[in-house]
């Protein structure tokens, strides 16, 4: 048995909705087969009786063991650090969050908002939103750099807007089945097992990337090519398993023709959505991508690209995903 409490800060419920798409295990399986004892969740079937309220306070005071505290949404600090833009149980939500984080064995941030501030923290960040242990790329966030939970771990970040249900359920199962020790985190406190690979890893367009063949328009145009060159796809510079663990068991954005927006990275939404940056590759002198794949540089990239274009076979210039 592992007790779990799930709160929502400045949230859209998207991570909860994504979580409900889970199979193997489903949300129900987590409860019935893996002994996750969901003490309370804002929208899932838990009665709000005296008993539940007691659990709340008991957890906050440390009188009842809280194994996992899940937080979805930003921590809202505004206005002027009062937190009153989000009141919860007659207190600013941020006051609950600090109490519960300090009592939980493990704290899991689900989704970009809880990890880094996400969309609500986009300039001008009208609510002064922060993530639990980051604000965008800067360490610290709400709890501060160096904060650890009772189990001695920093916040486990499961980013994504939303997070894929499997990234959440598999981590919960790992905790419930005594494999917490196997959860290795990267430098952004994301489980490496999911976030070492790139979004591009497993993308069906990767052969077009190899030969530098671009998709030229949306819709029918996405039957060929890679979305990196014209449409701002961040697949080569984003860490996620979106093309290893498919979405809704079927597809991924890049497979379906939508450029990756980098939503597992702290800077999402990139460039603060400034005019000219949405679904458009940012380029130097009109042709060279400003950002090149991780681990390379512009000179190397251009040499590789020139060679790749020469090597490009005829099929790489034709439609591949045809009727």
């Amino acid at each position: 048995m592992a007790s779990l409490l799930w709160f929502q800060g400045g949230a859209c419920s998207g991570n909860t909705m994504s979580f409900l798409n889970a199979e193997e295990p489903s949300a129900c399986d987590l409860v019935t087969d893996f002994g996750i004892d969901i003490l309370w969740h804002p929208s899932l079937g838990m009665e709000l009786g005296e008993q539940a309220q007691k659990i709340f306070w008991d957890c906050a005071k440390g009188e009842r063991p809280l194994d996992i505290f899940v937080f979805e949404g930003t921590v809202i600090m505004g206005p002027e650090n009062t937190g009153r833009f989000q009141m919860f149980a007659d207190r600013p939500m941020k006051d609950w969050v600090i109490d519960l984080c300090n009592q939980a064995s493990i704290v899991v941030a689900i989704g970009d908002c809880a990890c880094w501030g996400g969309i609500p923290a986009t300039a001008p960040n009208p609510t002064d939103s922060v993530g639990l242990q980051y604000l965008k790329k800067a360490k610290g966030g709400f709890l501060g750099d160096g904060w650890t939970s009772k189990a001695g771990l920093p916040v486990i970040n499961i980013p994504g807007c939303p997070a894929h249900p499997d990234w959440v359920t598999q981590i919960l199962v790992a905790v419930a089945s005594g494999r917490t020790g196997d959860i290795a985190l990267d430098e952004l406190q994301r489980p490496q097992t999911f976030f070492k690979s790139f979004t591009q890893t497993g993308c069906t367009r990767v052969q077009f990337f190899e030969y530098k063949q671009s998709t030229m328009e949306f819709g029918q145009g996405t039957r060929t090519g890679c979305l990196f060159y014209e449409f701002g796809c961040r697949g080569p510079v984003t860490r996620s398993p979106c093309n290893r663990i498919l979405w809704n068991r079927q597809s991924s954005k890049t497979r379906a023709g939508m450029p990756c927006t980098g939503c597992t990275e702290p800077e999402f939404p990139f460039f603060d959505l400034a005019p000219g940056t949405v679904f458009k590759t940012q380029k130097i002198s009109g042709s060279v991508p400003k950002e090149v794949p991780v681990g390379t540089d512009h000179v190397t990239y251009m040499a590789h690209a020139a060679a790749a274009r020469i090597a490009a076979p005829e099929w790489s210039k034709e439609d591949m995903f045809v009727v």
Partner: peptide, 27 residues
Amino acid sequence: VEVYAMFGGQWPHSSFMIPGGVMCGPT
């Protein structure tokens, strides 16, 4: 919403509908 993902890549939170149409070219 598996059907949604077939055309939009994922549900929730795709942005595959754009002015002028949709991003996908389904097979």
